[in-house]
Design a protein around this nucleic acid. Structure first.
Lengths: 256, 256
DNA sequence: CTTCTATGTGTATGGCGTACACGCAATGTG
DNA sequence: CACATTGCGTGTACGCCATACACATAGAAG
């Protein structure tokens, strides 16, 4: 009797058990506060005022409870953030109707990108470790399912999904930063940034970058940076995947 | 007379001027404290005890100064972090000897990966906006220079570099997380993580993920996750780039 | 009714970033 | 030399944050 939650061999943190629905829904009369309400409030705050505005105090205040009340449902802020992530990404789209792995992954990326635009704070969450939450794993599963028809090794499939996820996240982050043009210097707006950059990037020290600069990237193109650029990187990535898939197909032809 | 630093049109934050060497080296007798010494101490702390251990107070303490002394050289912690980043990545490798864009970018990625392993905290820095620091731009320039021989549009070159940078960063982060196997749950070691995952990931709800799990990924393979896996993603990525490069070549053949 | 346990409260602590007023020493100017 | 200026380090103080701990309470189990 080590005091586990029951028949579980390895014990899971309570908040994870709740997320996985492994927890009796509290046989108390009125739960009043719950993990769901907490993460809901936290997500609202993050959506509205940014991740930095999410503090235990503010979340509790929004729900009309004391700060410490949250700690009955969450071991610490880390867990809250993890739960927020899982709740915000939601369930993955249904890709079973797609007629090929590439089409499926494209839709996967599109859907993920949409989620990240809806919750711009997601890429900012300092995640520490692989995901153990149901929705995160469901997204991964959905992506892997697209690749099931290929001959890729399982490890390769996972690597592809990591690559894809990383790309979408990065693009979303970039777009978001451009949209709120609050830059590193704090002072520089888009135009001023370009001018400043142009002065520092001399043709002698940065020939290649200078060429890019002169071609007008970083200029008016900034506002044109939308999901089309996501598609560009996506195509590049999937082209690479396709090459690998084909190589596996020719190495071990279907005859069998 | 708006009170600028001199002939500069758009004024740069003081710390950036220092990084770019646009600042007179202080005509004071003994500067005692300097931006360089500050970021040096901060990097030491981050390398040793993690990014979380970097606080203004601790950095100052290590140098034998008061906390507030730092604010004479840095406007705030954000600037300190930006300066740390630039200093830690250092100058890019010389890729001019490489005999093709692909070889060059491979070396670029390898070098970047090495830097990120030397300073594991780099991917954790919450960067807010495009880089304006000299070394960051120098790395970008070095990468773009590799692509100069191709017919890619400048915007495409930049997109490729972003893709590449994102990939390397992500891989480095993953490797680092695996190495220090302090996972999200805090409790689970590698083996326990696998077992827990195996219990939650049912074949009904996560068929594809389950298959991956059963194939032994996430198992003993974890420690085998080294730079070879970086190379896998890298190859995928560069395959995609190569396809694009070739398509541009055939569309506008060299005859000219 | 008693007891247990889950849940919310109140208080307190230590760390953090940083605004502000001050001291001081080196400098350039009469 | 006397002087004002200015760059740089100090000391204090404030507000915010996460969270440990002791306590209160209310519903369920015995």
């Amino acid at each position: 009797m080590q005091g586990d939650t029951g028949e579980n061999g390895d014990s899971l943190p309570p908040f994870l058990e709740t997320l996985w629905g492994l927890r009796a829904p509290s046989r108390r009369s009125r739960p009043a506060l719950s993990l769901g309400r907490i993460v809901g409030a936290a997500i609202e705050i993050a959506d509205g005022d940014g991740l930095g505005a999410v503090s235990m105090g503010r979340v509790a205040e929004r729900l009309g409870f004391t700060t410490m009340a949250l700690y009955r449902h969450v071991r610490g802020k880390d867990e809250l953030l993890a739960a927020m992530l899982d709740s915000a990404i939601g369930a993955p789209p249904d890709l079973s109707g797609r007629d090929g792995w590439r089409s499926g992954l494209e839709e996967w990326a599109r859907a993920q990108f949409a989620v990240l635009q809806r919750h711009p704070w997601i890429p900012q969450v300092p995640l520490s470790g692989p995901p153990l939450t149901p929705n995160a794993l469901a997204w991964l599963d959905a992506g892997l399912a697209c690749l099931a028809e290929t001959r890729l090794h399982e490890a390769e499939k996972i690597a592809v999904m990591m690559l894809l996820d990383g790309h979408v996240r990065r693009e979303a982050k970039t777009v978001q930063e451009l949209q709120q043009s609050g830059w590193q210097t704090g002072a520089a707006a888009t135009a001023s940034y370009g001018r400043t950059l142009a002065r520092l990037v001399t043709p002698e020290d940065f020939p290649a970058l200078r060429a890019a600069l002169d071609s007008g990237v970083f200029g008016a193109d900034l506002e044109g940076y939308t999901s089309s650029d996501v598609a560009f990187g996506l195509r590049l990535l999937l082209d690479g995947v396709e090459q690998l898939v084909r190589s596996r197909d020719t190495a071990f032809p279907t005859g069998g």
